[in-house]
Amino acid sequence: MKWDVFLDAFPIVISGIGITLGLTIASFLFALIFGFFWTFTQRIPIKPIAWIFTWIMEFIRSTPPLVQLFFIYYAYPMVPHIGMTLDPFTSATLGLGIHFSTYIGEVYRSGIEGVEKGQWEASTALNFSTRQKWTKVILPQAIPPTIPMIGNYLIILFKEVPLASTIGVIGIMQLAQDYGAKSWNYLEPLTIVAILFLILSYPSAILINKLEKKMNRRFDKKEAIKTTHSREGAVM
């Protein structure tokens, strides 16, 4: 490791951090929103239609994100009628966003199925509309337990973002590669990339853990009960 190279490469590589984080956030938001789409397609009462969506979801999940990125960037513009050229960042947002939305959709589904049947019945008995059942009763209970799983997908997605360098999104990975190609020093720029990923992933993991605890505390039993029946007078 040559420290002068390290110091030389550092500002160059880190200048791509905005793009890398931006792509992570954009595609993750896309996945969070689009995930609901998959969840609700699974609940369509007409079974064959639900199956078609299940099959599409399975297809997206079972093919590599790299292939999907290439498809959106290189092949989609050539599709007759609906095809159009998308810039690298948009392509990568769509590609990673759609790929991860299939996982997120599955997480939502598990969360929703985890809500007791009695909660649906109680909200029917109280005459909530379908929309109110979802927004007031089901989703507030379904989502918090899935936070750690969703957080894990965020970190996995973050680590998949360098894939976007293959279609020309200039994030830290692409800049490190360029630096290596020009100076023939790969060790230092790639080490910087690894360190940057580490220092961003690890605190995120801790943050998600904290968020999970906070969400649970909102209605969990672990909270100490401050009752009026204190036992101060009891025998010590």
Partner: peptide, 16 residues
Amino acid sequence: RGDIGMVFQHFNLFPH
């Protein structure tokens, strides 16, 4: 059903 109320066997209160 607006005028009907029910206490469930397992109460089914909203935990959140």
